[in-house]
């Protein structure tokens, strides 16, 4: 058993009242804060679900197979992340660097999917200014995409650090904290994929939309 395994996930450097790393504690508090942030956006989406007055409606525009692939990509990036942390703690530098790079690549692929999706939607006539679905969809997934982009940049720096040897098993807390952020962004997408894509995919015009418009 290596050092990492016997100390659990405590940071051996820190001597605090709780024995926990201050930075990690703060990251968890920040994630709690982010729960409320995304929670409010998702609640807004749900309040407005099925209330768009004009098309395109989710049923006309959402492409579940494509999004399933991008969801899978983000899920696998989470796996890559946890493996990278494991290898880093074990001192296997090259494997760690490779897996952090895998996170960067998978995150970039996910963002690529999102950019393509946004462009396709725009071509098909759905923008934030088209209807309520467009408004809530673009802002929510856009904010999530911003989180992913920040994470990708962060991971790129860490990959460089791991390659250069400035990120090692003794300061693996740097990667662990970034990892918490990354996993959180992933679980937000788990919720978004279910709520926006799978559950709403059949949503059409609201009952009575015709009478409202004409």
């Amino acid at each position: 058993m290596t050092q990492a395994a016997t100390t659990g996930y405590q940071d051996p450097i820190e001597n605090t009242s709780t024995g926990l790393s201050s930075r990690k504690l703060m990251m968890w508090a920040f994630l709690a804060s982010d729960v409320m942030f995304f929670g409010t956006f998702i609640a807004t989406y749900l309040v407005y679900r099925g209330k768009s007055l004009v098309g395109p409606y989710p049923s006309e525009i959402l492409d579940i197979p494509v999004t399933s692939v991008s969801t899978f990509v983000l899920l696998m990036s989470s796996l890559a992340m946890v493996l990278a942390l494991h290898y880093l703690k074990n001192g296997e530098k090259n494997k760690a660097t490779l897996w952090i790079l895998a996170v960067v690549v998978l995150g970039t692929v996910f963002m690529g999917f999102q950019v393509v999706e946004f462009r396709l939607f725009a071509q098909e006539g759905l923008t934030p200014r088209t209807n309520l679905f467009g408004t809530t969809f673009f802002i929510l997934t856009g904010i999530h995409g911003a989180h992913v982009t920040i994470g990708v940049i962060w991971m790129a720096f860490l990959a460089y650090g791991s390659h250069k040897g400035t990120l090692r098993s003794d300061n693996s807390m740097d990667l662990e904290i970034a990892g918490l952020y990354w996993h959180f962004v992933d679980i937000v997408w788990i919720v978004i994929f279910t709520v926006i894509y799978l559950i709403s995919a059949a949503d059409g015009p609201p009952p009575g939309a015709e009478t409202i418009l004409h």
């Binding site: 804060s33 409320m36 942030f37 409010t40 956006f41 807004t44 200014r129 802002i139």
Partner: peptide
């Protein structure tokens, strides 16, 4: 503060996008 301020931030982002980009929140 940590739990309540993000809610205001969301309200702000939504109102800002309504005002600046013409969304329908």
């Amino acid at each position: 503060i940590v739990l309540a301020m993000p809610v205001l931030a969301v309200a702000g982002i939504q109102l800002l996008s309504d005002r600046v980009y013409g969304t329908y929140f």
